[in-house]
């Protein structure tokens, strides 16, 4: 059996969360840029509405302040916080990641961190960082051999996509493709995977099913 198949619950958990945080970072980064534009275009509440959906209350007076709050505010959905979480997960499973994958995660964190005390981080710089995050997914998908570690990361990505679509947009009818992808990874990773069928459930049930889905993949008990 290839060494890549030997993963403990802790490692598998870190891989899934790496995928989740990377996806959340990418989505929130892109949404931040969209709401930044909306604030400029006289929709001042746009940023508050977005972050409230993830439980974060933002306070700002202009688009630039919003950008700073979105990136560095003292809340769990700030881009720096999401990037730090992705990086922590990447660090603990460093041996499972290629240099380019790890470097991609780490460099985004350092780029954000370097500007933490500098109010001049601008939307252009943020857009550049998002490109680096997109490279992360590209680096996984271009690997000739997708090993088990990559499958866990992609499972986390799929899970987070659905989670965010439900939280941010409340969309159930657009989830079919995402659910298909999630079920594909779920089947690859576990014989006990229970297919996620978003159309059969209400939003609250969907969220509960999603949160419990990791337990079908990772057996945390011995």
């Amino acid at each position: 059996m290839a060494l890549s198949l030997y993963l403990s619950p802790r490692m598998a958990d870190a891989l899934v969360w790496l995928g989740r945080y990377q996806q959340r970072l990418e989505t929130m980064g892109k949404e931040t840029l969209l709401q930044f534009d909306a604030i400029i275009d006289r929709v001042p509440e746009a940023g508050k509405v977005l972050f409230a959906k993830l439980g974060s209350q933002l306070d700002y007076r202009c688009a630039t302040e919003f950008l700073h709050e979105a990136c560095y505010g003292q809340h769990s959905a700030s881009l720096l916080s999401l990037s730090a979480q992705a990086r922590e997960n990447a660090i603990v499973i460093r041996d499972l990641l290629s240099d380019s994958l790890f470097g991609s995660v780490n460099s985004v964190y350092h780029a954000l961190k370097a500007q933490e005390n500098n109010a001049s981080l601008d939307a252009y710089q943020l857009a550049q960082l998002l490109t680096e995050i997109e490279y992360f997914w590209g680096r996984i998908s271009t690997r000739l051999v997708k090993n088990r570690a990559a499958q866990f990361i992609l499972f986390g990505q799929s899970l987070e996509m659905i989670d965010l679509k439900l939280r941010l947009y409340g969309e159930v009818d657009t989830l079919f493709e995402d659910a298909h992808q999630l079920n594909l990874y779920g089947d690859q990773l576990s014989d006990n995977w229970q297919h996620f069928e978003p159309l059969n459930q209400n939003q609250s049930q969907n969220m509960n099913t999603l949160q419990a889905s990791m337990n079908h993949i990772i057996r945390y008990d011995r």
Binding site: Y6, L7, S8, P9, R10, I217, R219, D221, R222
Partner: peptide, 18 residues
Amino acid sequence: NADLFVDNNVLYLKSFNG
């Protein structure tokens, strides 16, 4: 250490699938 356990004098890695 959280990844390992000993059973009957043999060391094991806990696998994600139990």
